[in-house]
Design a protein around this nucleic acid. Structure first.
Length: 469
RNA sequence: GGCGACGUGGCCAAGUGGUAAGGCAGAGGCCUGCAAAGCCUUUAUCCGCCGGUUCGAAUCCGGCCGUCGCCUCCA
């Protein structure tokens, strides 16, 4: 299985490329994180989930991973919202940073190694501007500092945008500051009275958005690293500007791979507050949806495809997961057989291979999930037929653990040993007794009572199995 | 106008030259005292349309139609 090579579609080259890390065995990547002025919506989370699959896949393929995800805790929106709430910026963003981490946990998204806050890296940002100034890439207008795009010939290499062909006047620049060229962007905003500002080596003010990511990425990962990710909307101008800043300052290539997650639509429409189809994770959970169902749905479509988030889709995901859980439960409650069994080692190996091939193919989660469903079907058939031998069964469980380390969708071990377990077991036993005596009226009555308590009983060839429904 | 993505059965979706994975939903059946779970059978001679290349295309090329995204701070 060592022959399977990880490949990613690189926005920079617009081609799939085999992944190699700059540092032997160590993959370093930077992911644009949330602007913490609100709760994360499912579109945000889709991108964060894609990054979760990325880091888990890198680990599956043997890399040590260092992931950095920034927290943008200073921008126009955070400042305005904090002012409206009448609290400090720090206090305001703390709340949403905490909420953000809660949402990650809810969706079983693994923690990155670093979550730098923009406001903790002001000195680094100022220093980066200083370097750019010394290199002649900037100019000042008022007390603000701008990046002069004409000094960076490679500008546009990521987005392949040609600024001279861009539709003129498509959008009026609302910035109050004076720029020499409409294409230039602000690195450093002059201090204003009602805004937070910092005194730095380049003067007093606050950082521009693009600057934050360049400074934090280079501080924590170095001037060159392996992968940079984000949503497709970041390609231009954000990532283009990051490249311009970073490479002009360091003289070295910034990130080698650029991976971008497509957006998510809701019921075929762009998610927007004005359309009433805007969902935060919290809202969906309040409506009674299991976070794992949401996770499954979000990963059922590969990250570079638009995903149409629908309630029908949520139901389909729910059913698919139910099927997975049922098979795992069957496997757990069915005794092993002495003979060869009806599932062979080769079936397990085929599953492991297909899972890896799917993930290696630019994180094709749809393919990976299909591989899982295929092996699950084989398991069910075997369980109905010749059974599964101890040897194959243990290989299978190992393969499942490996798969779930990447997918993260298996039901968690139910450790909820409630106080009435004995009572329920007693009822189940009484029902079994009644069935033995063909007293089906009584056995059905007991089953109804259990159902009312939220307990589902299933009669298997190996006796009754019950669970909380 | 510039750059780009996409169009596969009722729905989601895999598939990038060799003859349509998988899931959900529907129908019939097996198993079951009845259920539940599971299994079996069944639903695309066809992959937006037209033309071309090829022994052979959903997959390559050209045109058309349609949907969508970005074009200065929205994942």
């Amino acid at each position: 299985m060592d022959d399977i090579r990880l490949r990613f579609y690189n926005t920079l080259t617009r081609k799939p490329e085999p992944f190699e890390s700059l540092e032997e065995g160590h993959a370093r990547f930077y992911t644009c994180g949330p602007t913490v002025y609100n709760f994360s919506h499912i579109g945000n989370l889709r991108t964060f989930l894609f990054e979760d699959i990325l880091r888990r896949t890198l680990k599956l393929f043997g890399w040590r991973v260092t992931q950095v995800m920034n927290l943008t805790d200073i921008d126009d929106k955070t400042i305005r919202s904090a002012n409206e709430a009448g609290i400090s910026l720090r206090e305001f963003t703390d709340t949403f940073i905490q909420a953000f981490f809660e949402d990650l946990d809810t969706l079983r998204i693994e923690r990155a190694e670093h979550y730098p806050r923009a406001t903790d890296y002001i000195a680094e940002m100022a220093h980066l501007v200083k370097t750019l100034e010394e290199g002649g890439h900037t100019y000042r207008s008022g007390d603000s500092i701008y990046y002069r795009i004409s000094t960076f010939p490679a500008y546009g290499k990521l987005s392949r945008i040609r600024l001279d062909k861009t539709k003129a006047g498509a959008r009026v620049d609302s910035d109050e500051y004076e720029k020499e060229d409409a294409r230039d962007f602000v690195l450093w905003k002059a201090a204003k009275e009602d805004e937070p500002s910092w005194d730095t080596e380049i003067g007093s003010g606050r950082p521009g958005w693009h600057l934050e990511c360049s400074a934090m990425a280079m501080s924590l990962l170095g001037e060159s690293f392996d992968i940079h990710t984000g949503g497709v909307d970041n390609i231009f101008p954000h990532h283009e500007n990051e490249i311009a800043q970073s490479e002009a300052a360091s003289g070295k290539p910034f990130a080698r791979f650029w991976l971008h997650a497509e957006h998510l639509n809701v019921e075929s429409e762009k998610m927007a507050k004005s359309k009433g189809n805007f969902f935060t994770l919290r809202e969906l959970i309040e409506r009674g949806y299991d976070p794992i169902v949401i996770r499954y749905l979000l990963m059922s479509v590969p990250y570079r495809q638009k995903l149409n988030f629908t309630f029908d889709g949520l139901h389909a995901a729910e059913q698919a997961l139910e099927r997975i859980a049922n098979t795992l439960r069957r496997l757990e409650h069915t005794p092993e057989v002495e003979n060869q069994g009806a599932l062979c080692q080769a079936d397990v190996e085929a599953f492991r291979r297909q899972l890896r091939e799917g993930l290696a193919d630019d994180l094709n989660t749809a393919k990976a999930l299909a591989a899982l469903h295929t092996v699950l079907h084989k398991v069910n058939t075997a369980l109905d037929g010749g059974g599964i031998s101890p040897k194959v069964r243990s290989a299978l469980l190992e393969a499942f653990t490996e798969a779930d380390n990447v997918l993260g969708i298996f039901p968690k071990q139910e450790i909820s040993e409630t106080n009435d377990d004995d009572e329920i077991q007693s009822l189940v036993n009484q029902r079994t007794e009644a069935r033995k005596n063909k007293d089906f009226a009584r056995s059905d009555a007991i089953r109804d009572e259990l159902t009312a308590r939220g307990i589902l009983v299933e009669d298997t060839p190996h006796g009754p199995v019950w669970r909380k429904g």
